[in-house]
Amino acid sequence: MKGKTILVIEDDFNLIKLITYILKKEKYDIITARNGEEGIEKVRANNPSLIIVDLMMPVMDGYKFLMKLKELSLSHIPVIVTTAKSDEAELHKVLSMGIKAYIKKPFDRKFFLEIIKKISPL
């Protein structure tokens, strides 16, 4: 049976490795991108059921990625933001951009999976 596809956009190679491991173990199919620009290409090509995107990335960051998604009328795909930012005002700003949730780094695996499964149940 083919699982749901999640696109993980993150510039840190090791975090991609960690998130991919955790989600694959739950039988999600994973595709990855290292920045927002690459992420947009992967969204177009793979039509994922959920996008997990980091905020701070080179080339195209998470904010620009969210705006581009809206511009391309792809905002129907649920997005979860992962971030190392802790400024509440900044996090409210991201929430107002139409995302489903944000997850602060470092995160607990159980909490992370609860959110993923709630938004994109298998």
Binding site: D12, L15, S86
Partner: peptide, 24 residues
């Protein structure tokens, strides 16, 4: 705020992989 931000990613990796090693 910059220090907190810079520390969070390595911490996320240490905590995340340690949790996997403990649980799986």
């Amino acid at each position: 705020s910059s220090i907190t931000h810079e520390v969070r990613t390595p911490l996320a990796l240490i905590r995340g992989f340690a949790q996997v090693l403990l649980e799986d």
